[in-house]
Simulated assay, not measured.
Amino acid sequence: MARGRKGAPEAIRITDAPAPLSDDIKKRQRRYLAAMLARTAFFIAAGVTGIMGILWLAMICVLLAILLPYVAVVMANASTPKGAETSPFGAAMTQQDRLRQLPSRHDPR
């Protein structure tokens, strides 16, 4: 834990606090729902363009509809907490994670 003046623990500001997990889940759900609605629209467009005889456009719509779930899952799972940095391994690091890191040999802590 970081120490302020005279060895007292440093206060965490409310602006540094991460957003509630429920807000993050709601954002992820909205993004995923929007992607699945777009997927449905691509399938409908593929059917309509296929009936109209524009097969190349129908195939593009089907391809996008097939690839969209993968992209939607990656988008839904890719979120970093407020104020987070990434570690050398790509994982999100919060302020508490940085404070828990082991000091280096040259670190005067």
Rank of each mutant, 00 (worst) to 15 (best):
G4V: 01
R39E: 10
K6F: 10
A72P: 05
M1H: 09
F89T: 13
G53Q: 08
R98C: 07
R31D: 11
R105I: 11
A84F: 07
K6D: 14
Q96K: 12
L21C: 10
L63N: 00
T86W: 02
K82H: 13
P88H: 06
Q29A: 15
V62Q: 02
R28P: 01
M52P: 00
R3G: 04
V62W: 03
T15Q: 14
H106F: 13
A35T: 00
S79D: 13
P88F: 05
A91L: 13
M59K: 04
N77F: 12
M93H: 03
L37Q: 10
P20F: 07
A58C: 09
S22H: 15
N77M: 14
F42C: 12
L37S: 04
M52F: 10
R13I: 00
R98A: 08
A46Y: 01
P81V: 13
A92D: 13
Q29K: 12
I60L: 15
T86F: 12
I60F: 09
L37G: 01
A41I: 03
A46I: 02
R3I: 04
A78Y: 06
Q101K: 09
A45C: 09
S104M: 08
T40Q: 12
R28Q: 12
G50L: 07
R98W: 05
P20Q: 11
W56Q: 10
V73Q: 07
G83A: 09
E85K: 13
V62L: 14
A58K: 03
A65Q: 06
R5T: 05
C61T: 00
D16I: 02
A58Y: 04
G50M: 08
A17G: 08
T15V: 15
G83E: 05
I51R: 11
L64I: 04
T49D: 09
R28W: 01
D23Y: 14
P108C: 06
R3Y: 03
K82A: 15
P81E: 15
S104Q: 08
F43N: 06
K6V: 06
G50Q: 07
K26C: 06
V48K: 05
